[in-house]
Simulated assay, not measured.
Amino acid sequence: MHYVTKGTCSRAIDFDVVDGKVTNTKFTMGCMGNTQGVAALVEGMEVEEVIKRLKGIDCGGRGTSCPDQLAKALEQYLEENK
């Protein structure tokens, strides 16, 4: 899935979901060390668990963050794949 982020340094997130687990997460732009770290940490994790852990994380008072945007992208994925 391709998700265009809002309110973050990263511009987009691409990921796959296989058997309910997140895989192949890649952020476009953003703080590369942090986004690569987030991508590595969520690899193979259940979609719902990623959402639970990352939703609501704030970056610098923006009201969102790259991890929060990944949670939003996964929520959209779930909504589109009911």
Rank of each mutant, 00 (worst) to 15 (best):
D14F: 01
S10M: 03
N34T: 07
R53N: 12
I13T: 06
E46T: 01
G20H: 09
C66A: 12
T8P: 00
G60C: 05
G56W: 00
V18N: 11
L74Q: 12
A73T: 12
V18I: 15
V47I: 07
L74D: 11
V50H: 03
A71T: 05
T64E: 09
G20L: 04
M45E: 14
V50Q: 05
E49R: 11
D14E: 15
K52F: 07
K26M: 02
L78H: 01
A71G: 07
G33A: 13
C66R: 08
D58F: 01
G60I: 02
N24M: 01
V17I: 12
A40E: 14
G30W: 05
D16H: 11
H2K: 15
V22W: 11
L54M: 12
K52E: 15
V22Y: 10
G37Q: 11
F27N: 07
Y3K: 07
I51V: 14
K82T: 08
Y3G: 02
E79S: 12
T25W: 04
R11Q: 15
L74N: 11
V38G: 01
F15D: 12
K26V: 12
I13N: 08
F15H: 10
Q36S: 13
G61E: 10
V50T: 03
C59A: 10
A12D: 10
G61D: 12
